[in-house]
Design a protein around this nucleic acid. Structure first.
Length: 491
RNA sequence: GGCCUCUUCGUCUAGUGGUCUAGGACGCUGCCCUCUCACGGCGGUAACAGGGGUUCGAAGCCCCUAGGGGCUACCA
């Protein structure tokens, strides 16, 4: 299918957190590699020494692992093309910078940031496009020495030929621009650190990356990168630029307009399976008339292809994520959900250290709310009345209010039900039979009959079906709560 | 501003010149199920950005316009 070995990479900067956009790009690289028997490589792009720190690398890796991705080569697992941090590959970049310098394809530039800014400003004032003038290109040795004597350090610029620049993109076809518009750009800062565009090209080539799959914001970076490939005489990899993720207002996805880090989604009770699944459909779909959207990682691998990636930006819709998360929760077994819900219950202070009995109980509770749980973090709230009691003063009297029944009607109902329960086996089925019978005998509508009972048992108007709920609340507490409700109503 | 790029229901999308009175999913909504809430089932709502071509025929090809987005650093 492909003539070269497939090698793809995700190259995040170590920012401490894993951004959804990073996760989505990583996912597509991963799916492509796994689908085609290639290698998926993780490389840390940490050449921005001002902003990055080695410690913040782990947060990114953690996020990627959380959604279920694993890589064949990377800073943590090693590999034959290492090291996998750009900050540890500086000698390599210097070697190629030197080569370009020796070949006259690059030159030293002693301009200060202030001088460059002034130049840009002047160009703007003249309504010209800001672009480096190339004034350091013809510096004599004496002039360079003079700058050095001043203490200036040189940045290195690449000479950009006035040619058309084009590359092939698997998703977008041929993309073309003109080198004449570009101006000689910096490939190495005066502190000796290479710029992103340069380091990326060197690494992608040296690591034998076959397909550069990355977000669309890099399309314009690709032009200078192509110039670098050509200067070095290297063949271009295949490119594939993925659509951008957008906020609901169509601006580029950002913090402030909602969650963007995987850690935040985890804390909100989203399942990694759902995040993965949802991300997969942001800019890709397997096609077909009746498309199946709930897919496992394995199914996605099977279905994935770069050719089916879409080409217009996609809004990250949290509402649809919620739906998909609910689907995934229902796909898991009750005990699996219980395990994942446990940390949320503990955080809410409802469960301390767990015993086997408690896990068993939690699992039973989960099976009651399983299909009512959109996110794991909703569990503590919807299970609170199983774990927490309340006093007479806290009985939610207003919830008993009804146009059809007076408080004394309700008290009567509670008393008769209480009598009945005292002589009924405390299990869902027998209670259901007995209480339905009572309802018929009293000739109340079912809704009118059961709602006050629900309020008495749970202190709320929404709960899972009553009989199993009662069974799990337990006989003593059900009875106590009924007596308490009666007392509160009679006050 | 310049360069690049994109444009089908509110959102994610199917669609590769006739099978499109444009299909699916989320959302919203009606009905059914039902002790509440959910789940589930069956319906409904809603789109080819606009204008010119090309063609017997255009959502799909070409051109223009408009709009969105990205980039425009000694950031990545």
């Amino acid at each position: 299918m492909y003539d070269k070995p497939i090698r793809v990479r995700i190259a995040p900067s170590p920012t401490g957190n894993c951004h959804v956009g990073t996760a989505r790009t990583a996912l597509y690289n991963y799916l492509f590699a796994r689908k085609n028997g290639g290698k998926f490589i993780l490389r840390i792009d940490d050449t921005d020494t001002k902003r990055n720190s080695i410690e913040s690398e782990e947060g990114v890796l953690e996020g990627l692992r959380w959604v279920g991705l694993d890589w064949d080569e990377g800073p943590d697992v090693g590999g034959p093309y290492g090291p996998y941090r750009q900050s540890e590959r500086l000698d390599l970049y210097h070697k190629y910078v030197q080569q370009l310098l020796d070949e006259g394809k690059a030159y030293e530039c002693f301009c200060t940031p202030e001088e460059l800014a002034a130049e840009r400003e002047a160009q703007n004032a003249r309504k010209e496009d800001p672009r480096y003038s190339g004034r350091c290109l013809h510096l004599t040795q004496e002039e360079k020495d003079a700058f050095r004597a001043e203490g200036r350090k040189a940045a290195i610029r690449l000479r950009v030929p006035d040619d058309k620049i084009s590359f092939h993109d698997v998703i977008r076809g041929m993309v073309e621009s003109d080198g004449a518009l570009m101006g000689d750009f910096v490939i190495q800062k005066s502190d000796g650190i290479p710029l992103y565009n340069f380091a990326t090209v060197i690494d992608d080539h040296v690591m034998e990356i076959s397909h550069v799959i990355r977000a669309a914001e890099h399309i314009s970076n690709t032009f200078p990168q192509v110039v670098i490939y050509r200067a070095l005489g290297w063949e271009l990899p295949e490119f594939a630029h993925l659509v951008l993720l957008l906020n609901p207002d169509k601006t580029k996805i950002s913090k402030r307009k909602g969650a963007v880090y995987l850690g935040e989604f985890a804390a909100m009770g989203y399942l990694p399976e759902a995040m993965l699944n949802f991300n997969a459909f942001l800019g890709w779909n397997p096609g077909g008339e009746e498309l199946q959207e709930i897919l496992t990682k394995e199914e996605l691998i099977e279905l994935f292809s770069l050719e089916r990636c879409t080409q217009s930006n996609a809004v990250f819709d949290p509402v649809k994520l919620d739906w998909m998360n609910g689907m995934w929760i229902r796909k898991l077994s009750a005990s699996e959900v219980a395990e994942r819900v446990l940390p949320f219950m503990q955080k809410a202070g409802m469960i301390g250290p767990v015993s086997e009995d408690q896990m068993l109980y939690l699992t039973k509770l989960i099976s009651l709310i399983h299909e009512r749980l959109p996110r794991l973090d909703a569990a503590p709230e919807s299970l609170s009345y199983f774990y927490c009691d309340w006093s007479v003063d806290e009985v939610a009297l207003d919830l008993f209010a009804s146009k059809k029944q007076t408080p004394s009607d309700i008290v009567m109902l509670l008393k008769r039900t209480l009598d009945l329960l005292l002589q009924t086996e405390f299990a869902a089925e027998p209670m259901e039979a007995a209480m339905n019978q009572l309802c018929d005998d009293m000739q109340w509508k079912k809704g009118d009959f059961f709602m006050p009972l629900r309020v008495a048992f749970t202190n709320r108007k929404v709960s899972p079906p009553l009989f199993h709920t009662m069974e799990l609340i337990g006989r003593a507490r059900v009875i106590a709560r009924m007596e308490m409700a009666i007392a509160a109503l009679e006050k």
